[in-house]
Design a protein around this nucleic acid. Structure first.
Length: 287
DNA sequence: AAGAGGCCCTGATAGC
DNA sequence: TGCTATCAGGGCCTCT
């Protein structure tokens, strides 16, 4: 479900609600995720204070007081719910990226804090948790990933080096986390629209001007999405029960057969499959 | 070695 | 109503 902007919103909400709090109790209801939950998961996290919460790419990073790190990925359908205690009753309308009600099925893990609990829910089980015993091991794991678009390393020389002579299309590169991390299918489509680059274009055919646009617009789109609270496709709400609104700004994603929104462009948004992922583009601006 | 494709899952929706 | 097919915001693994 989520790409970098949505994970950033989740991170901000967790940061606000559970940083410096101690995990009082953990209930594991279903260990089956993309990777089976580690057998020592509860032991390592239970009764530990959370020292920091951060994000890299589409991962949330939880830094524990015992210098362990717990990271998780939401896959396609993972959601986080924060349930606050209000007198005797639980309020259920504080949730991230899901309906205001706590889902009944697929709640895999519950983390209890003093006045609230955090639920990890994931119907499709593409998400996962991992634990690292030191920062070095955590960095080592993230080493496999390319820079985020915001990273200084994501510059013209880097693009040149990586894309020179490559026949793979540019959209697949944007989705390739080893090339650049944090971009998913929605934002890859939107970024290429702003760059006026056809998603099927072989990467070796990109011009210097294209490189500059890719660097500029990948930052621009992700930041705009974060400012709007992320994209909300299925009535998902964020931290305060509010809907993210970036989906109202989609130019191509899910706009098949509609008119291009660029003034004076008479193009139509087309849909095609690239590597089995839906791809949307304007047949005029992105020739 | 690069690149395409299959696969891991459940649930919502469209079409017959 | 009830079946089947298709699609979904991801990414790892295998095969050529």
């Amino acid at each position: 479900m989520p790409e970098l902007p949505e994970i950033e919103i989740v991170k901000q909400s967790l940061y606000k609600n559970i940083k410096f709090k101690k995990i009082k109790k953990i209930i594991v209801k279903n260990r089956n995720l993309r990777f089976k939950l580690a057998s020592n998961f509860k032991n390592i996290l239970n009764n530990k204070k959370i020292v920091n919460i951060s994000r890299f790419s589409k991962y949330i990073i939880i830094n524990l007081e015992n210098s362990y790190f717990c990271i998780f990925h939401l896959g396609m359908s993972g959601t986080i719910h924060i349930v606050k205690k209000n007198n005797k009753n639980l309020i259920t309308n504080v949730s991230f990226y899901n309906s205001p009600l706590i889902p009944k099925k697929h709640n895999h893990i519950e983390f209890f804090f003093n006045n609230l609990k955090v639920i990890y829910n994931d119907p499709r089980r593409f998400g996962f948790f991992k634990i690292f015993s030191s920062q070095r091991k955590l960095f080592n794991y993230f080493n496999r990933y390319g820079p985020e678009p915001f990273d200084k390393k994501f510059n013209i020389n880097y693009l040149k080096k990586k894309l020179k002579g490559k026949s793979k299309n540019i959209k697949n590169y944007l989705l390739d986390q080893k090339f650049v991390s944090g971009i998913g299918n929605i934002y890859a489509n939107e970024i290429l629209f702003f760059c006026k680059i056809n998603p099927s274009l072989e990467s070796k055919k990109l011009s210097l001007e294209n490189y500059k646009k890719l660097i500029y617009y990948s930052k621009y789109i992700l930041i705009s999405a974060i400012k709007k609270g992320g994209s909300t496709i299925k009535n998902f709400t964020n931290t305060n029960g509010k809907l993210g609104s970036f989906q109202k700004n989609f130019n191509v994603y899910q706009r098949e057969n509609l008119k291009c929104l660029i003034k004076n462009c008479c193009g139509i948004i087309k849909k095609k499959k690239i590597s089995n992922r839906s791809t949307f583009y304007c047949n005029m601006c992105q020739k």
